[in-house]
Amino acid sequence: MRMQEILILKIVVRFVIPFIQVYGFYVITAGHLSPGGGFAGGTIVAASMVLYALTFDASQGLEKLSHERASLFESLGAIWYVALGLLGIMVGGNFLTNGQIGIPLGTPGYLISGGLIPLLSFGIGIKVAVTVVSLYYSLVEED
């Protein structure tokens, strides 16, 4: 009986995880148009990865996202944000200057608009997702 329950759980989770991740990436990429953004979308993506580690094993989840890879992605997200911010200073504006230094702003209300803001939310999303997942792993891990 218990084996069957675990089988149902595993199959349902394997089916549901892609939908959660697509929704999380939608919240990240549409963050400048609708409610949401990097933090909320990153948390949803992280929830899908924690669901994987809960259903299968934490060691199996750690194979997908080891601590070294997690710290690499975390640092990449932070460096991406700071580099895009410093781009404004390089060209002669302030930190995180957007439209004034000639970045195309696009049509307001469309997906490609807002200049740097979608790229910034993408960096924030990756950083938040990986941080929350590695929080869970470092809490659960046997030491």
């Binding site: 948390t43 992280a46 929830a47 924690v50 929350v132 869970y136 809490l139």
Partner: peptide, 9 residues
């Protein structure tokens, strides 16, 4: 979501 999972862990 996440806070509950962390507390249950």
């Amino acid at each position: 979501g996440v806070t509950t999972i962390l507390m249950i862990a």
